[in-house]
């Protein structure tokens, strides 16, 4: 098999438009990791994620000719992936989510913290905790409603800029910032609770 290196996304797209199987293979090799990771973050289930990834690549191959190149290829693919995942979520019974309001910080009337704030930032630096915390965070993000989760996953987990996240989701940048902030506040609060309980258990 010729393994001519397809140098950049435009060449790749051009190949897809001409029905090149080689371009499709390069596309898969280049993006499947990121797309799978994103699908997993949103869907939280291996077999669902696998099907979503299939759909994403088929959509990209079939619609390559409609891609205008206004955004980067990966950003277009992320968008397709998010849409695919959200459609899958809608088809299912919603996994249980919590009222995010219950976990927002509380302030006094004049805007002061109502209680002392624990600083656990140093505690979590211990290597032993790393894996455990990963699982805990994973579990907590699953309880976020998709409105917050998708923004959080793109920005904080995948590490995209707020502008990119906004573009992918068709939101304004302020909307992205606000959802992201609330998602972080929620997770911070849940982690605080988790670490406090853990400490009590040990004593």
């Amino acid at each position: 098999m010729p393994t001519e290196r397809v140098a950049d996304d435009n060449v790749l797209l051009e190949g897809l438009r001409h029905g090149s199987a080689e371009a499709a293979e390069t596309l898969f090799d280049r993006f499947h990791g990121r797309i799978y990771s994103l699908a997993m973050s949103i869907l939280k289930n291996e077999s669902d994620a696998e099907e979503a990834v299939q759909d994403v690549f088929l959509t990209v191959v079939r619609k390559a000719h409609t891609f205008k190149g206004n955004s980067a290829l990966y950003s277009w693919m992320y968008r397709i992936c998010v849409n695919t995942c959200l459609m899958r979520l809608r088809g299912k019974r919603r996994s249980e989510t919590v009222a995010i309001e219950d976990f927002m910080p509380v302030f006094t009337e004049d805007g002061m913290h109502t209680s002392l704030v624990d600083d656990w930032s140093k505690e979590v630096e211990r290597k032993a905790l790393e894996k455990e915390l990963g699982q805990v965070i994973q579990k907590f993000t699953e309880t976020l409603s998709e409105k917050y989760r998708v923004v959080f996953v793109l920005s904080d987990v995948e590490g995209l800029s707020n502008e990119e996240t906004a573009q992918i989701l068709g939101l304004t940048v302020p909307a992205v910032k606000s959802r992201l902030h609330r998602a972080r506040l929620y997770l911070r609060e849940r982690l605080t609770g988790y670490l406090r309980e853990g400490k009590m258990e040990k004593q």
Partner: peptide, 11 residues
């Protein structure tokens, strides 16, 4: 720290 920890849950 929450923000940084969250990077690690990336599959």
């Amino acid at each position: 720290t929450t923000r940084i920890l969250c990077r690690q849950i990336r599959c």
